[in-house]
């Protein structure tokens, strides 16, 4: 009966939602210290290629590959984050966009390593590995009433779900602390923050690197969920898509990123019946949203109101 409820296709869409949420949060974290980065797609690509290559060539276990991918992206984030300190606003946006393009062009041209524009296939997939490992341990998915591919998709989904919860928990805790206050102070007035004794360099690089780690992590997961990657997965369109998740949902609060990534990933699926027009609609939607709610769908006020009305229900009587 469980088997009838679980549709691997839908589970895969759900997994993409979760990966996209991590990407959206990577932009959110960087923005929370006032830095608009369009480099997420580039860092995502670094994470994806690193993890794919080390798992294929050195036969690292997937989990190690994913960690290595995230760390390498993070190191690159620090290396880029330091010179990027000299830039702000749209300059930073364009420079990071450029960085993403340079990374993509390197993926295309470094054929001996990356297999060029064709990309890398045969990347070990998380779902399959889990099925094999559990089978070796003597567990059989059918005992749960599941087919192997259902079991695979379900475990991928659950792993990503737990990871999402952890990341959100981490970022929320960080936000409500001395570190989070330093980030917002820098976002609101960098000079004043500096005068209040905040080491602006340190915190800006920290938040930039955190964004890079998250994007790299998401990229590595993407590689091991899809099984194949190519440079075009990490091009301009991906960078813009990720930024839009965050801004559409609302960049002031983390809920905005979660909502934006979920809504915009699911929308094309729902709009499948008019798939020819869906990107045209998408474009118009962005224009209308910015005119009506430039801060994004969800902002601090909405959250406060929601909380209050819930609180009202509890204490009301």
């Amino acid at each position: 009966m469980l088997g009838e409820l679980l549709n691997p296709y839908q589970l895969q869409i759900a997994s993409f939602v979760l990966i996209n949420i991590i990407l959206a949060i990577s932009v959110y974290v960087t923005l929370s210290s006032g830095q608009l980065s369009l480099g997420s797609a580039g860092f995502m690509g670094i994470g994806a290629y690193t993890s794919a290559l080390v798992t294929i060539h050195f036969e690292f276990p997937i989990i190690v590959g994913v960690l290595v991918g995230a760390v390498v992206a993070g190191i690159l984030g620090i290396l880029i984050g330091i010179p990027a300190l000299r830039l702000s606003g749209v300059y930073l946006a364009i420079a990071t966009l450029g960085l993403g393009e340079v990374i993509r062009v390197i993926f295309v041209n470094w054929e001996s390593l990356t297999n060029g524009a064709v990309g890398i296939s045969n990347i070990p997939q998380i779902g399959r590995e889990i099925v094999f490992t559990t089978r070796d341990l003597g567990f059989n998915a059918t005992s749960l009433g599941l087919q192997n591919n259902q079991f695979a998709s379900l475990s991928v989904f659950l792993i990503l779900f737990v990871l999402n919860i952890f990341i959100i928990w981490f970022i929320v805790r960080q936000k409500n602390s001395r570190v989070g206050r330093a980030f917002s102070a820098i976002q609101l007035d960098e000079k004043a923050a500096e005068s209040m004794g905040i080491n602006v360099t340190y915190y800006k690089v920290l938040s930039f690197a955190q964004g890079a780690v998250l994007a790299g992590l998401a990229g590595a997961l993407f590689a091991h969920v899809m099984g194949y990657i190519s440079p075009s997965d990490f091009a301009y369109h991906r960078a813009v898509e990720i930024l839009i998740f965050t801004v559409f949902g609302g960049s002031e609060v983390i809920v905005g990123s979660v909502f934006g990534a979920a809504f915009l990933t699911l929308m094309p699926e729902v709009l499948r019946f008019i798939s020819e027009y869906r990107y045209i609609i998408y474009g118009v939607l962005l224009v209308i949203l910015m005119a009506v709610r430039p801060q994004g769908i969800i902002d601090a006020n909405i959250l406060k109101r929601l909380k209050r009305s819930k609180g009202g229900d509890v204490h009301g009587s």
């Binding site: 749209v90 930024l243 839009i244 990107y279 474009g283 118009v284 962005l286 224009v287 910015m290 430039p294």
Partner: peptide, 19 residues
Amino acid sequence: VSHLAPLISTIGVSIFLEN
């Protein structure tokens, strides 16, 4: 309205025109 809004808005137009 932050400097993000016009950026996103014109990206919306570009997506619209391209498609």
